[in-house]
Design a protein around this nucleic acid. Structure first.
Lengths: 219, 219
DNA sequence: GTTGTTAGTGTAGTATATACACTTACATGT
DNA sequence: ACATGTAAGTGTATATACTACACTAACAAC
């Protein structure tokens, strides 16, 4: 057996949030080669003394200022031609940012970080379009069997807010009564007792998660 | 930004099969350091000119003679201490071998390859115990929402064979009538017309998949 | 006080999942 | 040829989960 090839290992993170009733993805404009000036997923190279999860969290914080959010490993991508420099294997992650935390920061190797509507994306560098669609598929699937969607909302939210998240990601409208019945039967929400007055209409009850940050797997 | 660290990237494959009504896993005895003499998952280093899936399939064939089986990426593992040599990131896969194909081969860097009962495993090298249990969890979960279990059976099988696979992996007994109703309602099987006489009892109808090799996602 | 807008609620029907026991067809042994 | 043992094969009733569907309530704005 001959000596194994060397690779650079990167993490790339698909960061989702909800803004203005659309699903948004965080992209950075590449400051360096290759694909200088192109939009790409935030991410960067793994260091010797850190784990993959740690690397993803660090790069996310460094490049975009996003921290302390839901972060899950998605899949790895290692086709020989995926990076023109060659020898780069990427471990993709996806992250969910609550709808009220949109403060961004640009950093060292990222000229700028920006939110894009998921259905109005620019051309992406590398194989990032593939990664992005894998992340979306995973997110969509997970809505049906977990409470992951709550990570896209602030601590307190209305049932309509939650339904909107589902409708946006699944790209279909849901029946209001059936949705509420379903979500309340999960037994993961509690009423705050407060109401939110938000326009020229009846105020909505506010809810919060019973165990904030806990993802419940359904069925 | 400083120059990125170098890694060796490996694939490790959790190969499942059914033997003698138990779930079995394929392990190799390590011929070289580290963990020389220990049991480990088959796998090996990624070459520069191949993709991850390709690497997993190649290593599986080289080390164990297993080829042309269901192979799916599981997850990646990259904790700094997972390999004493350091700097090794592993992309884990799992594979399903039909119950009738058990011919194994030992190769270059594997002293020997052997099937182990899943609930009677030896100590494993590296973090392979963690990987193995992740693979089992994934397999178990996928039984409920896909037709992946068929990959553990030969081309022709009885409904009892199939039920046994489910019972072994889920580690629970299932009602025969309900199971048959469920699986037939999936509309993925066809009767061969043949029967298998296999003991001092009524012969069982043989079935085959309507679209062999196609994994159907349920729900 | 009228209008517009979203919040909030119930019921009936359909489909799916569960619980449960006996008969059939063969091989084997007498 | 008959009795025995073994796994194959089959149906029905009940409970649970999903679907479809329309009106009233509470507020702001005018």
């Amino acid at each position: 057996m001959n000596t194994p090839a060397s690779f650079n290992v990167a993490t790339d993170i698909v960061v989702f949030t909800i803004r203005a009733d659309t699903l948004n993805v965080l992209l950075i404009e590449r400051a360096g080669q290759p694909f200088k000036g192109s939009w790409a997923l935030p991410g960067g190279f793994l260091n010797n003394d850190e784990g993959l999860d740690q690397c993803a969290a660090r790069e996310l914080a460094e490049e975009t200022g996003v921290g302390d959010v839901y972060l899950e490993q998605l899949a790895s991508f290692g086709d020989p031609g995926r990076d023109p420099r060659g020898g780069v294997v990427s471990v993709a992650y996806f992250a969910l940012v609550p709808a009220d935390e949109h403060a961004l920061r640009a950093a060292s190797d990222a000229a700028s970080a920006r939110w894009f509507a998921f259905d109005d994306l620019p051309e992406l560098a590398f194989d990032h379009a593939v990664i992005l669609h894998a992340a979306h598929a995973r997110l969509k699937a997970k809505l049906d069997y977990s409470t992951i969607a709550f990570c896209l909302l602030p601590a307190e939210f209305t049932l309509s807010n939650l339904q909107t998240v589902y409708e946006i990601i699944k790209a279909e409208t849901l029946d209001k009564r059936n949705f509420r019945k379903w979500v309340l039967a999960l037994d993961v929400l509690q009423e705050t007792g407060e109401k939110r007055v938000e326009g020229a209409h009846r105020p909505a009850m506010l809810y919060r998660e019973k165990n904030p940050g806990t993802i419940k797997i359904i069925r």
